[in-house]
Nucleic acid binder design. Structure first.
Length: 291
RNA sequence: GGCCCGAUAGCUCAGUUGGUAGAGCAGCGGAUUGAAAAUCCGCGUGUCCCUGGUUCGAAUCCGGGUCGGGCCA
């Protein structure tokens, strides 16, 4: 077992983070660590926050949840919106409360940006505004790039200008604050460095063939285990929820646009691609030790 | 058995009048602080079915095979 995790036992229990790509076995490891460290599990998965999405999001089963206290699973209605900031504000008090009781928070999940907010705090930036975003979405990308370049050339130079999301967000910050996104972001970059040194967590690493096999097995189990019925039952969802891998694919199966085999393969491919992005993300989090 | 069509990347396919091949998807690598299971960027990975021939040169033209599909018996 990992010796590093026991160092702080007895005093103020530090949170243990368990990260890794989807289907790598985070939930199982979390249970194991919770038993070993007298811990409680806190969700760090953007989609397992939602109620009614348990199967598609591969949330821990009722049986698993009965073994150890689990927090922040199924706490949002499918119609509710969420983002990294709102997640952080939900999770911080939960974690503090667990620590107050002398238990170890085992923060478990694969949503890199959500975890990053939790561990390193928010930059001094405004939250997104749906109305402004809708306005920006209606404009051509070139137009947004021009305006960003005018308002904040430094930020424009370091932004991937083909990425509408990134351009739009940078511009949004400038418009909302009247300041330059680049200077606000620089402040956060510097404050963030010392934080990493005080964190501890594990990132699960598996070989590609093994991970891909686990993904295929899990997709099969989901489809046979009620995922189709689950999606059929979700009549009203937020645009957030609609992005869940499996949601769109099962919807098109339900209306007869695809067959079962194609649906399964599309879910597998999307999941593999997501897992790869997660690996890239966590590889950059040097404070995580590889497990 | 006869005739016809097809065989090119992991998959589906494109390939001009002969000049050793390229798209989509998959895959691989990367970026990424309030949409992140999102969004975006980069990379072609090849016994062109086999074999003999024509040609300076064949994925491409000709002969013979093999496999798959279709039609006629």
């Amino acid at each position: 077992m990992n010796s590093k995790s026991c160092e702080t036992a007895g005093t103020d229990p530090k949170a243990l983070y368990i990260c890794g790509p989807t289907a790598s076995g985070k939930s199982a490891l979390a249970l194991e660590m919770a038993r070993e460290l007298d811990g409680e599990i806190v969700n760090a998965d953007a989609f397992q926050l939602y109620r009614g999405l348990e199967i598609v999001s591969a949330a821990p089963s009722p049986d698993e949840r009965s073994q150890v206290p689990h927090h922040l699973y199924g706490v949002l209605a499918p119609t509710e919106a969420a983002d990294a900031g709102s997640y952080m504000r939900m999770a911080k008090p939960v974690i503090a409360e667990i620590q107050r009781r002398g238990k170890t928070p085992i923060v478990t999940g694969g949503s890199g940006l959500y975890l990053k907010f939790l561990t390193h705090g928010p930059a001094p930036l405004p939250a997104g505004e749906p109305e402004l975003r809708a306005q920006l979405d209606a404009r051509p990308l070139d137009d947004l790039v021009d305006e960003l370049t005018r308002l904040d050339p430094v930020e424009a130079a370091r932004t991937a200008l083909q990425n509408r999301r990134f351009v739009s967000r940078a511009l949004e910050i400038c418009l909302l604050t009247g300041k330059q996104a680049s200077t606000l972001r620089d402040q956060w970059e510097t404050q963030t460095r010392e934080i990493s040194a005080s964190l501890h967590g594990l990132v699960i690493q598996r070989s590609r063939p093994e991970l891909h096999a686990r993904i295929a097995a899990r997709t099969r189990a989901m489809l046979e285990g009620g995922a189709i019925e689950e999606v059929a039952a979700l009549t009203e969802v937020s645009p957030n929820c609609e992005k869940a891998i499996g949601f769109r694919e099962i919807r098109s199966l339900l209306v007869g646009e695809t067959d079962r085999g194609t649906c399964e393969e599309l879910i597998n491919a999307a999941t593999r691609q997501y897992a790869k992005r997660q690996e890239t993300w966590f590889r950059r989090e040097k404070w995580l030790s590889v497990r």
